[in-house]
């Protein structure tokens, strides 16, 4: 039993408000800047990883706690080696050339980056459209290869999720402390 909103209007309004909060946060962290994203990929500026990893630690502990209280359900995405690994590598190439990701691109447009608007936005919509056309063939030939379903890491290891969450979050915090100590 969860308590989420069902009505379309409420979901659209809530999506918009949460988007404003997300965009505000991305802009304040500087991760909507081309320099910061490319700096991360050149391993010179670790702002992107700092934001992502602290979001993952906060989110993971909270969402699993909410799940324990019956207030949230997990929705892990279905995956396969053909889809997640190959798609991930293609994404990475585009990520480096564009210097924004789909989320930070919208934030970059909001702060005035015209390369994000005139180049990136049109490109992403075009790429998604081409994929939609090729989807039936790719599904048979590649995406279904090495399918492992919508499994989570604790399910794979057949252990209580907190035996993964506690060590993993500790390791992430240690890594972030090391980044700070190394002045990265």
């Amino acid at each position: 039993m969860t308590i989420h909103f069902q009505s379309r209007k409420a979901r659209l309004a809530l999506g918009f408000v949460m988007g404003i909060a997300f965009g505000f946060l991305l802009q304040k962290a500087g991760v909507a800047r081309y320099e910061v994203v490319v700096g991360q990929l050149l391993l010179k500026d670790f702002t992107v990883l700092k934001v992502m990893l602290s979001a993952v630690v906060t989110g993971m502990i909270g969402v699993y706690a909410l799940k324990g209280l019956g207030l949230a359900r997990l929705h892990p995405k279905h995956g396969s080696w053909g889809a997640s690994a190959i798609g991930g590598l293609i994404f990475g190439v585009g990520f480096a050339l564009l210097g924004y990701c789909p989320g930070t691109l919208a934030a970059a447009i909001g702060q005035g980056n015209l390369d994000a608007l005139a180049g990136g936005l049109i490109g992403i919509v075009l790429g998604a459209g081409v994929f939609a056309s090729l989807y039936p063939g790719l599904q048979v030939r590649v995406l279904s290869k090495g399918d492992f379903g919508d499994v989570t890491i604790p399910q794979l290891l057949k252990i209580n999720p907190w035996f993964v969450i506690v060590p993993l979050c500790s390791a992430i915090v240690a890594f972030l402390l090391w980044l700070e100590a190394s002045k990265l």
């Binding site: 490109g123 992403i124 075009l126």
Partner: peptide
């Protein structure tokens, strides 16, 4: 703009291939 367009197309294609983004 041209590289952002090409990069965007590759990123958009890859995001749908992988079924998600950053």
């Amino acid at each position: 703009i041209a590289v952002a367009l090409a990069g965007g197309a590759i990123l958009g294609f890859g995001a749908r291939w992988a079924n998600g983004c950053t």
